[in-house]
């Protein structure tokens, strides 16, 4: 178990980087996702169409290809991104594609009677979104949002390929150096699992609180 103690701090520092990147990129992606979903639903055919094709592009292209296009591909056009910048950019771009669909589904799930009742009171469209639609959509989306965060976390493993020193990067480095891949990848697995569980528990708590009125 000597190897485990030797690499524990490296894996831990990788874990911190993964968590940080997951949080930052997810927050930005979720904000863009709300905007994208609203644009898709209410933005008319041109703006809505653009969002539609963006989502198709993100969903249709393999994750690793997207990452390589951003990090390696763009260098040919004079855009030379650091590993961190490329990582954030890709995670946000990728996450936004999925977040749009999560928010769109959540908003559509709110019964039309809710909008009608709010309309009948004379509320403005913006107020209806803010006070009626989004709060209810949010609750319906919680399970999907939990999955989304876990997905974003797992996507960070790909970033070792562009030199971002995350858990996977550290485990890979250790496996090469010590020739004990079994132990090191097991440590990496445990680290990911712990973080994923924290996300799952947080998600469940929020669902429970929301279930008060459901």
């Amino acid at each position: 178990m000597h190897v485990a103690s030797l690499y524990a701090s490296a894996i831990a520092s990788g874990a911190l980087k993964d968590v940080g990147l997951t949080i930052v990129s997810s927050l930005i992606a979720l904000l863009l996702g709300i905007a994208g979903a609203l644009a898709r639903l209410y933005g008319g055919s041109v703006i809505g169409g653009l969002v539609y094709w963006y989502v198709e592009l993100i969903r249709g292209l393999p994750a690793i290809l997207q990452l390589f296009i951003i990090f390696f591909g763009l260098t040919q056009f004079g855009i030379d991104l650091s590993p961190v910048a490329a990582s954030v950019l890709w995670l946000v771009a990728y996450g936004t594609g999925y977040a749009v669909e999560i928010f769109r589904a959540g908003i559509m799930e709110v019964p039309t009677g809710q909008r009608e009742a709010a309309d009948a009171l004379g509320l403005s469209s913006l107020k209806i979104l803010q006070k009626i639609i989004v709060p209810q959509a949010w609750v319906g989306m919680l399970p999907n949002l939990t999955s989304f965060l876990v997905l974003q976390l797992k996507n960070t493993t790909l970033l070792y390929l562009v030199g971002y020193a995350d858990i996977m990067y550290q485990a890979r480095l250790g496996a090469d150096a010590t020739e004990q891949p079994g132990i090191l990848y097991l440590m990496a697995a445990l680290a990911y699992l712990v973080i994923a569980l924290v996300i799952a528990v947080a998600g469940l708590r929020m669902e429970r609180r929301a279930a008060l009125y459901r």
Binding site: G113, E116, A117, A118, R214
Partner: peptide
């Protein structure tokens, strides 16, 4: 409304 449509 027939279905009440209170905000849940």
């Amino acid at each position: 409304f027939q279905t009440f449509n209170l905000f849940p």
